[in-house]
């Protein structure tokens, strides 16, 4: 099993749809979104909301992987986003929408600071530091008692109604998380298809070669990290306000591992499509096993191992192989 080939960091694949197909798909999707809350059961609305949020987190993690860096700090950025906006709305009386933006920006700033400091170190050290950063953040809040301490922050006020959209039911959150996902998807699809994504791939695949071609590695790594940080932070904000409660317990290693799961489940070569596919599977499964206490980590853990062993290229690649498309089929 040539795992390296199957688990290519830096290689991207474009799932290209024809023009008409894209248009039709778009209309269907938007129609489904608008009609959604009126036809979809509450439980499934929840699943779809989580789907959007995990997709965003997964995409963000994946873009950092593309640049060749394996990070374990998704939980940290979720945490930063969540706490920033919670503090702003709860303690500073800030309305939701500016707090949302602020949550994303503050995450981005942390990512910038961390990235600049940490990308000088090599792979293994980077991994350890991102993990320690996430854990220390969590423990810092938990032990010092600041920002709600171990109990957490609760009762975040919901955003006010916008026309017919209300946030007191899942409806508003449904629309918001979809909107966020669309923005994330657009951004990262553009990244993937443009020179930006190509440069990320070059850095991930053959950094010396890239450097010899004039690519300033540090700049792009930090850039990718900040991008990922911002969007993960935004997802964290939505998570916090949707659940109207957060605590340090929400941000252990587990969410970081879930973001990895959704990314590899869908397929590492697919920056946007991968996590989107992976996240829907995870969210659906998770909702049904959440009741039984040990089952969640068990399933996620087993899935992680199983995917690496039996389908390291992810679902999308596997499906494409089965249907004869894709690069391997071409040559």
């Amino acid at each position: 099993m040539n795992i390296r080939d199957h688990f290519r960091i830096g290689v991207w694949e474009n799932v290209k749809l024809g023009r008409n197909a894209t248009l039709v798909a778009l209309i269907l999707i938007i129609g489904a979104i608008v009609a959604g809350p009126y036809f979809i059961a509450s439980r499934w609305q929840h699943i779809l909301i989580m789907w959007c949020l995990w997709s965003i987190a997964g995409i963000s993690w994946l873009v950092i992987l593309k640049v060749g860096e394996f990070s374990l700090c998704s939980a940290a950025f979720l945490c930063i986003g969540a706490y920033s906006s919670s503090v702003m709305t709860l303690k500073l009386g800030c309305p939701f929408w500016p707090a949302l933006i602020a949550g994303g920006l503050i995450s981005g700033i942390f990512a910038l600071a961390l990235g600049v400091v940490v990308f000088r170190l090599k792979g293994l050290y980077f991994l350890v530091i991102t993990y320690l950063f996430a854990e220390m953040l969590r423990l810092g809040i938990s032990l010092t008692g600041y920002l709600g301490g171990g109990t957490g922050l609760y009762g975040m006020p919901e955003p006010g109604n916008i026309g017919f959209i209300t946030f007191s039911t899942k409806q508003g959150w449904f629309y918001l998380s979809f909107l966020l996902l669309l923005i994330t998807a657009f951004t990262f699809r553009r990244v993937e298809a443009s020179r930006i994504g190509r440069v990320y791939s070059y850095i991930g695949m053959a950094p010396d070669l890239a450097e010899s071609l004039g690519v300033r590695i540090m700049k792009y790594k930090v850039q990718a990290f900040v991008l990922g940080g911002i969007f993960t932070g935004l997802a964290g904000v939505v998570m916090a306000h949707y659940f109207t409660g957060i605590s340090p317990e929400s941000f252990t290693l587990y969410p970081s591992l879930v973001t990895q799961l959704v990314a590899i489940l869908g397929g590492v070569p697919y920056l946007v499509a991968g996590p989107v596919v992976g996240a829907i599977i995870y969210s659906a499964v998770d909702e049904y096993v959440a009741a039984i206490s040990g089952l969640r980590p068990l399933i996620v853990g087993v899935l992680l191992v199983v995917i690496i062993f039996f389908m390291p290229q992810g679902i999308i690649s596997r499906l494409r192989q089965l249907f004869g498309k894709g690069r391997e089929a071409k040559s």
Binding site: F7, F70, G294, P297, G301, V302, V305, V306
Partner: peptide, 21 residues
């Protein structure tokens, strides 16, 4: 690197899940 870490993370969660169960 990447698959190894992910795999061992999976093991971590699996064992944790089993213990909790």
């Amino acid at each position: 690197l990447a698959p190894s870490i992910i795999c061992m993370a999976g093991v971590l969660l699996t064992i944790e899940g089993i213990v909790v169960l």
